[in-house]
C-alpha cells in the first residue's frame, strides 16, 4: 500500500462527530495529495460554507491527528475549503492548536469536548439501535438480546463502531461485558428494551436524517460549483 492509500485509509477513521459517519464516505475529502518526500495535503469541503465551526474544527483536527500517526509522513497540511471560518480554523490546525485558539475569547475547549462526548453517546445509542433491531427482526427475544455479551456481537461495522465509541467514553467493552448499554454504561434490562428501542430509534433517525440533509446540500453545492465553473464566473 502506498502512502496515499494509507492516508486515505486513516482518514476513513475520522467521523463527522454529529453524524457518526466517516468523512470519506460523506464525500467531505475533496483532495488528498502526497508529495514524493511524504508531505501530505488534505482538502476538506463541508456541505455548506456555514457548517458549525465547532464540528468543522473537530474533523480537521482529527484528520491531522490520524495522519500524523502514520510512518513515513512528512509535513501535514489539512485545510477546510470555502468555509466562513476556514481561515481561522486552518491557521489553528497548522499551529497544532485547539479550537479556542482559533477564536480567542469566543469559546473554550472544554465546551468542545463536552459537545463531542454528547454526540458520542448519541452515536452509541443509534448504532446499538440498528444492531438490536436486526437481532429482534431475526427472532431474538428481549431477554435473549439483553443477555448478550460483547463477545456475542456480530463482526460488522456497527458493532465495531459501538465498541470504539464505548472505548472513547470509558465504558467497559471486554468480551464478558453486556453487549447493549444505556448511554451511561449501565446494562439494559429486558423489560426496558422496547421503550429504550423506541427512543433509540428516534436518535438513530435523527442522525440519519441529518446525514441525508448534509449529503443533499453537498450535492447541491458541488452541482452549483460545477455550473459556475462552466460559465466561467
Amino acid at each position: 500500500m502506498n502512502t496515499r492509500a494509507r492516508v486515505l485509509e486513516a482518514l476513513s477513521e475520522v467521523h463527522d462527530p454529529e453524524l457518526d459517519e466517516p468523512i470519506t464516505s460523506l464525500g467531505f475529502v475533496t483532495s488528498c495529495e502526497v508529495s514524493p518526500s511524504g508531505d501530505v495535503e488534505i482538502l476538506l469541503r463541508l456541505p455548506t460554507p456555514q457548517c458549525a465551526p465547532n464540528f468543522a474544527y473537530l474533523m480537521a483536527a482529527d484528520a491531522r491527528n490520524v495522519v500524523r500517526r502514520l510512518p513515513d509522513v512528512g509535513r501535514i497540511e489539512v485545510r477546510l475549503e470555502d468555509h466562513y471560518t476556514g481561515k481561522e480554523i486552518n491557521a489553528a490546525i497548522a499551529r497544532g492548536e485547539g479550537f479556542a485558539a482559533a477564536f480567542p475569547g469566543e469559546t473554550d475547549d472544554d465546551q468542545l469536548d463536552a459537545l463531542r462526548e454528547l454526540f458520542q453517546r448519541k452515536a452509541l445509542v443509534a448504532r446499538q439501535a440498528r444492531l438490536c433491531e436486526a437481532l429482534l427482526a431475526d427472532g431474538a427475544t428481549p431477554v435473549q438480546v439483553t443477555a448478550l455479551r460483547v463477545a456475542d456481537l456480530p463482526d460488522d461495522g456497527d458493532a465495531r463502531r459501538c465498541l470504539e465509541l464505548r472505548g472513547q467514553l470509558g465504558i467497559g467493552c471486554d468480551p464478558n461485558a453486556p453487549a447493549f448499554v444505556a448511554p451511561n454504561g449501565e446494562p439494559l434490562a429486558a423489560d426496558e428494551l422496547t421503550l429504550w428501542l423506541r427512543k433509540a430509534r428516534l436518535v438513530r433517525t435523527s442522525l440519519e436524517v441529518n446525514g441525508s440533509i448534509c449529503r443533499s446540500l453537498l450535492q447541491i453545492r458541488s452541482r452549483r460549483g460545477a455550473e459556475l465553473e462552466e460559465v466561467g464566473t
Partner: peptide
C-alpha cells in the same frame, strides 16, 4: 452573503 446563500442552498431541496 453567506446567510442568504445558505438559505438558497436549502431551496435546492
Amino acid at each position: 452573503k453567506g446567510w442568504i446563500e445558505c438559505f438558497h442552498a436549502y431551496m435546492g431541496l
